[in-house]
Design a protein around this nucleic acid. Structure first.
Lengths: 159, 159
DNA sequence: TTATCTGCAAATATTTTGCAAGGTA
DNA sequence: TACCTTGCAAAATATTTGCAGATAA
């Protein structure tokens, strides 16, 4: 990790989005604006939730020469400066999305479908955790796992 | 996956544990008892939560020739027959534990510490998910992510 | 005896690192 | 110009697969 080390503080991103905003956010920290960084950020926004691999594919449609290494490094950097975040949906690679894209993920471990729910679903739990365990919950970082209705119905029928 | 495919039903394991119980459970499904399978199951029980790598290391203390491949295949099989389960604690490899070992995992994404809490912590959430989304929550399959008190205090002090 | 299992090697997949060339400010 | 970034190749990690020989039943 060479380009990403050093005192890069993680503060709140600017309210606007777009090329100028990204440039400013980068410059504030002594980082440079590059086409690759804009493309990766655009891809994250367009794809919603995507693995580094998927993001790379998307970016390469506009700029085929961009290397997956750059995608990894850029996602890392964008996360550190607070523009994107990653979520573990269970198996497989983490997925990246916009920082603002906050909600609870429900993953069916039968069919793999990912559903999104508002984060206030976790409010009660978050309060309990804070009170009982002094633990500040990040409700959107990991997915909740279980079984969706479709899979439950199927299983119920076949048993 | 050759030894593990086929119609292996996932029913409840027997109440007792031990070599005889494992043998019986395997034979019920036309599978064979082997020293490796017992060793892997023992390691899972001894280690509590462990990655395939850690389990392999543990097994190899008793039987150095056991290959990591066998550990992966065996964990897969033991999971399919309901004796072990795996949990995603966030980054890194999944960890395996006994099926009975059910609780909610709280992972601090600053320091990585894993805390365990009783699953009834999630009861309210589980009910809401069932009512609102027809989603049957598996409270122990994925960890909850957040920040533990120690890390919050440190961060608060440095800011 | 026979089908299941295992160990080994190799293939995949994912992510990281070193480094020289290229690009931004 | 200075040094941040990128692309490429290679390394490091994690997991899976093919297959021949070993083994349980």
């Amino acid at each position: 990790m060479d380009t990403t080390s050093g005192p890069v503080e993680s503060t709140a991103p600017p309210a606007e989005s777009g090329p100028a905003a990204l440039r400013r956010t980068l410059h504030q920290r002594g980082l440079r604006m590059t086409p690759q960084r804009q493309l990766v950020l655009d891809a994250v926004r367009e794809l919603g939730h995507a693995t580094p691999e998927q993001i790379c594919t998307q970016v390469q449609q506009a700029a085929p020469a961009v290397n997956i290494t750059t995608v990894y490094r850029t996602l890392d950097l964008l996360e550190r400066i607070g523009l994107v975040r990653h979520t573990h949906l269970g198996h497989g690679a983490p997925t990246y999305s916009e920082q603002e894209h906050q909600h609870v993920h429900l993953v069916c471990h039968s069919c793999g479908t990912v559903t999104e729910s508002p984060t206030d679903l976790m409010d009660g739990l978050a309060q309990r955790l804070l009170a009982e365990s002094d633990f500040v919950l990040d409700p959107s970082h990991v997915a909740l796992s279980g079984r969706c209705r479709e899979c439950r119905d199927e299983e119920g029928a076949s048993r």
